[in-house]
Design a protein around this nucleic acid. Structure first.
Length: 472
DNA sequence: ATCGGCTCGCGCAA
DNA sequence: TGCGCGAAGCCGAT
């Protein structure tokens, strides 16, 4: 556990306190959560109960019905499970910009310590840089997101091939069930007035009452929450794991896990998914290697990148050769060259690209393989490389349920050469790897994907099954 | 249908 | 210091 815990301020424990406070910034689950387990460990050592705090504000960029709905859909189940374990729960919904935004500090006043997520992007990164110094109680950040703790890799890795042997070597030590949730005492205090009770039937009206962007509708495909995450994992294991290796780069086969939104919102842990996939593969004589490579090696490479990068949202983070070649080709003429509105509304000349953009607009996620194509074409059609990067990040921030994640930035910057190698020089891209529509047509079922997305656009409904897949 | 070249630099072996 | 090889490819030659 010590590999996962960092105290981010010099404060010591106060003489008296009412609880240990767990601040669920990213990991909103009870299961397979080293951070919550650490809060429970402290609570046992100090004979205190645990209070689980989760906040949702209207004020972060691109707050919308899509993100609010997904997050709120997880809240009733979280409340139920916490109650069952005797852990207190405060959920604070800041609906208006004028509402008070002091919940964490108010709760910390009666706390013995704060335990938060060690997470290298988005709000958690900013909070962990700012908040600990303002508290006079210990503030611990716990790595509950990676299987091999980020602290075990001591430098920024160059590519998958350099981190892979390190992870393989450490994996036996960490691919094990984490400590359980046993608080030192049951939480019995009344919850503060700013707690918001959420019922599944009330989510739509709650979302409507928030000062957020109501034009970004909830995803057609993904509902949030622990129960939904577990259901998708089961579905993946039974229906898709055996064809993952052959079908993962065939979007119309729908052979991937679709767990990235749940991993990002912390409804499920990659550790649980990995253990479940390994066990299922053993029982059913399958090979889970390719899936585990994606889930562990490449995901943790992304966390390693974000952790060791000053600002993962800029091109500065690229390797020297990529920066050099991009700089050289930035003045190249783009043909066509689209304004961002034209791309955002999926109105380019390229039907496949438009479909990937529509998938993002409607589902809130693009299939991993087509997302590379999506990004490469944005580089090809944007006035500058800087514009291309800004647009890709903005699209994920605004529409993607798996956006703002280390994986997001790594996948986007991969399109600019990160973790990749140079290739034959060409206009606009320089030595950055190029991808073509012809390649996509040759290697994937573009027509089937176009039909699927067109159907989704027409009906607003997901068609439930494809060949080889069991009903969800 | 398949193959090699494209091109840089990391990390290990020596 | 030398050498093998790498997150998803392209392209032209055969």
């Amino acid at each position: 556990m010590q590999d996962r815990v960092r105290q981010l301020n010099p404060a010591s424990f106060p003489a008296s306190a009412r609880y240990v406070l767990y601040w669920a910034q990213m990991n909103r689950r009870l299961e397979s959560n080293h951070a919550l387990a650490y809060a429970c460990q402290l609570s046992r050592e100090r004979g205190l109960p645990v209070l689980f705090y989760e906040g949702l504000t209207c004020s972060y960029p691109h707050a919308s019905d899509r993100f609010h709905t997904f997050l709120l859909e997880g809240v009733p189940e979280t409340a139920r499970r916490l109650h069952h374990h005797g852990i207190g729960y405060v959920f604070h919904l800041r609906r208006r910009h004028s509402d008070h935004d002091n919940a964490l500090y108010e709760l910390a006043r009666d706390a013995s310590a704060v335990v938060a997520d060690d997470y290298p992007t988005f709000v958690a990164r900013r909070y962990n840089a700012r908040v600990p110094a303002k508290l006079n109680i210990p503030y611990f950040a716990v790595d509950a997101s990676c299987i091999v703790p980020m602290s075990r890799i001591d430098k920024r890795e160059y590519a998958a091939y350099t981190i892979r042997p390190k992870i393989r070597k450490l994996l036996p030590q960490y691919l094990v069930a984490p400590p359980g949730i046993k608080p030192g005492k049951r939480f019995n205090d009344p919850v503060p007035a700013f707690h918001t009770s959420v019922r599944a039937s009330g989510i739509a009206s709650l979302v409507a009452s928030c000062e957020i962007d109501h034009s970004v509708r909830p995803s057609t495909a993904f509902h949030g929450g622990r129960v939904e995450a577990e259901r998708r994992l089961e579905h993946f294991l039974h229906s898709n794991l055996r064809r993952y290796a052959s079908g993962r780069n065939e979007p119309s086969a729908r052979a991937t896990s679709n767990l990235s939104p749940y991993l990002h919102f912390g409804h499920i842990a990659s550790l649980e998914v990995a253990l479940a996939a390994k066990e299922y593969a053993q029982e059913h004589k399958l090979i889970a290697g390719e899936f585990l490579e994606e889930l562990i090696v490449r995901r943790e490479l992304a966390f390693n990148f974000a952790r060791f990068t000053e600002d993962p949202e800029t091109l500065d983070a690229l390797p020297e050769w990529a920066l050099r070649t991009l700089r050289q080709h930035d003045p190249d003429r783009r043909e066509p060259c689209y304004a961002t509105e034209q791309m955002e509304t999926a109105a380019t000349h390229d039907a496949l690209w438009n479909a990937t953009q529509n998938e993002l607009l409607l589902r809130g996620k693009i299939h991993g393989y087509y997302r590379m194509y999506w990004g490469k074409k944005i580089i090809e059609w944007s006035a500058t490389h800087h514009d291309a990067l800004r647009f890709m990040i903005a699209m994920h921030d605004r529409y993607a349920l798996d956006g703002r994640d280390p994986n997001t930035y790594t996948n986007i910057l991969w399109c600019f050469g990160l973790h990749d190698r140079p290739w034959a020089e060409r206009p606009v891209f320089g030595q950055i790897r190029y991808m073509s529509l012809e390649g996509m047509k040759r290697k994937t079922g573009v027509d089937a994907y176009l039909r699927e997305i067109a159907e989704l656009q027409r009906t607003g409904q997901e068609s439930q099954t494809v060949q080889g897949e069991l009903p969800l």
